[in-house]
């Protein structure tokens, strides 16, 4: 049984900013999304941003998450944290800040918050036209090695 904080539970049961952002082609406004993970990995996040082009500010943000309780809560937390920030400021948001916003995450679940950071990076890089650096396959701390599942591409970004 995971020991989730009340904040995690609250954002899981009543997530803020779920869904997607339509691009209304408003002048001076850009809408992009970034994606990480896949259904094969067992977790995935699509993060949508509405950006004010002149100021580089994030006006709004929405998420769609396939994943566990903490992935959903982390995604929701991230959208809250980055609203109003400039893109450069948002890029500095760490997964630790996401976890702190949630009042902490169980150690084995810290990686669920990394996904948010990565999706944000993906969205901003896409907006800026920068190719995304390929992430090393990070083995991380194995939680269970008994079935030797290392051949699968399950993401293991821990802490």
């Amino acid at each position: 049984m995971w020991d989730y904080t009340d904040k995690v539970m609250e954002l899981f049961y009543n997530p803020k900013n779920q869904g997607l952002l339509e691009d209304d082609r408003e002048p001076g406004i850009a809408v992009v999304f970034g994606e990480v993970g896949s259904i094969a990995c067992g977790d995935a996040l699509r993060l949508h941003l509405k950006i004010e082009v002149n100021s580089d500010k994030i006006l709004d943000s929405r998420f769609q998450t396939f994943g566990c309780t903490s992935a959903i809560a982390s995604s929701s937390a991230l959208t809250e944290l980055i609203k109003g920030l400039t893109l450069d400021e948002a890029l500095k948001v760490t997964n630790k800040e996401i976890a702190d916003f949630l009042g902490g995450l169980p150690e084995a679940k810290m990686h669920c918050s990394v996904m948010g950071q990565e999706a944000l990076e993906a969205a901003i890089y896409k907006y800026r036209g920068i190719p995304l650096a390929v992430h090393e396959e990070d083995e991380g701390a194995l939680v269970c090695s008994c079935f030797g599942i290392s051949e699968s591409k399950i993401r293991r970004v821990i802490r």
């Binding site: 539970m9 259904i39 994943g67 566990c68 309780t69």
Partner: peptide, 9 residues
């Protein structure tokens, strides 16, 4: 399309 732990919780 959804994840088991989220269903359990």
């Amino acid at each position: 399309y959804i994840e088991g732990e989220a269903i359990l919780l």
